[in-house]
């Protein structure tokens, strides 16, 4: 007979509950009630606490949300790192079974199973965090209420607390910024682009796949440029949120992977090289090493970084094995107790 594990039962129950709530109240009401309004009111409340400064409120709420989603972020970062460490083996398998697709799929599945890596582990935590980030993003823009219509809209999303009612409309001035309008001095756009570039550079892990390498290279430049451009167009409250979020991301990334491919990077190197010929973000396989020019110092730093990562991964694997063993022992002792 088909049996469901407890974990699957919980997942099914949660999914059914979410569907029932969505159908009963409507998706927009649920979204507003569960995510948008709490974050929006927290922003307004913090503005009131911090002398009416909406800028400080944005910084604090971004930190709070980053901390609340920290377990998910860590899981995602660890999973990405583990996937990246498997890349050389994956390439070997792909070469070996290039003509037999079925065998290739089986071998890849075996590789994931043996190394205890779940490919969905990179995406799932990101997907779970996604609604929270959208709600935070929407809350900032709604709280700013830069037109009378938006203020009218804001009135429908505030809690009936005097401290919140008294704070609205929010003070849009923060440092040199009018948080409701784009930064005229381009400082925020530069900060946003630079911080995102650092984060991208740190988070791009070594890959043996030339396609991934090429995509990584493009993204390291494209994403910061794109966000810098957005920052020039949208209210600077959003730009501030992106900059703070990037800085927190850099700190977190440093504790997980260290400086990553940023290690050994020098500003002089950046200035003398055009973006298109920038060094690859990863330690490539032997074939790529011949093709890509790289400074000896940088090579050494990347090799050291890679060794560190492999060690961490090994450490993680042995920890998992120890956990499994402990879990096994616990199961057998439970069974023994039941028998007695």
């Amino acid at each position: 007979m088909f049996r469901l594990s407890r974990k699957n039962l919980i997942i099914i129950a949660v999914v059914i509950a979410v569907i029932v709530i969505l159908v009963a109240f409507g998706p927009i009401e649920v979204w507003n009630l569960v995510l948008l309004q709490p974050i929006l009111n927290l922003l307004v409340l913090l503005s009131s606490v911090f002398f009416g400064s909406f800028g400080i409120a944005i910084i604090i709420v971004t930190i709070i949300v980053r901390l609340l989603t920290l377990p998910l972020t860590l899981r995602q970062l660890h999973a990405t790192k583990a996937m990246s460490a498997l890349a050389p083996k994956m390439q070997e398998i792909q070469k070996k079974y290039a003509k037999d697709q079925e065998k290739l799929r089986k071998e890849i599945a075996n590789l994931y199973k043996e190394s205890g890596v779940n490919p969905a582990g990179c995406m799932l935590p990101l997907l779970i965090q996604f609604p929270i980030w959208i709600a935070l993003y929407q809350s900032i823009t709604r709280a700013l209420a830069s037109s009378p219509e938006e203020l009218l809209n804001l009135s429908q999303n505030l809690y009936a607390l005097p401290i919140i009612q008294q704070t609205v409309p929010l003070q849009a001035q923060f440092l040199w910024l009018d948080l409701g309008a784009p930064d005229r001095y381009f400082i925020l756009a530069i900060l946003c682009g630079a911080s995102m570039w650092v984060l991208q550079k740190m988070s791009t892990l070594p890959s043996a796949d030339p396609r991934q390498q090429s995509m990584g290279k493009t993204m390291i430049w494209m994403m910061p440029l794109m966000f810098a451009m957005f920052t020039l167009m949208v209210p600077s409250g959003l730009g501030l949120f992106w900059v703070v979020s990037n800085i927190i991301g850099i700190i977190m990334q440093y504790y997980i992977t260290g400086w990553g491919t940023l290690a050994g990077f020098s500003l002089a190197g950046l200035l003398t090289r055009a973006p298109a010929t920038a060094p690859p973000p990863a330690t490539p396989g032997p074939a790529q090493q011949l093709q890509t020019p790289m400074g000896a110092e940088q090579e050494e730093a990347l090799a050291a970084e890679r060794m560190k990562q492999e060690k961490r991964l090994e450490h993680g694997k042995s920890r998992d094995k120890r956990k499994d063993r402990r879990g096994g022992r616990r199961d057998s002792s439970r069974k023994a107790r039941r028998r007695s």
Binding site: I134, Y137, Q138, I140, T141, R142, P148, E149, M233, L238
Partner: peptide
């Protein structure tokens, strides 16, 4: 998605953000 859900070009120039109403 962020831009689709949060920030769309407004009719009066600039961007309409947060899914709010256009002026």
């Amino acid at each position: 998605c962020l831009f689709l859900t949060g920030c769309l070009p407004g009719t009066g120039g600039g961007f309409l953000c947060g899914g709010g109403s256009a002026p």
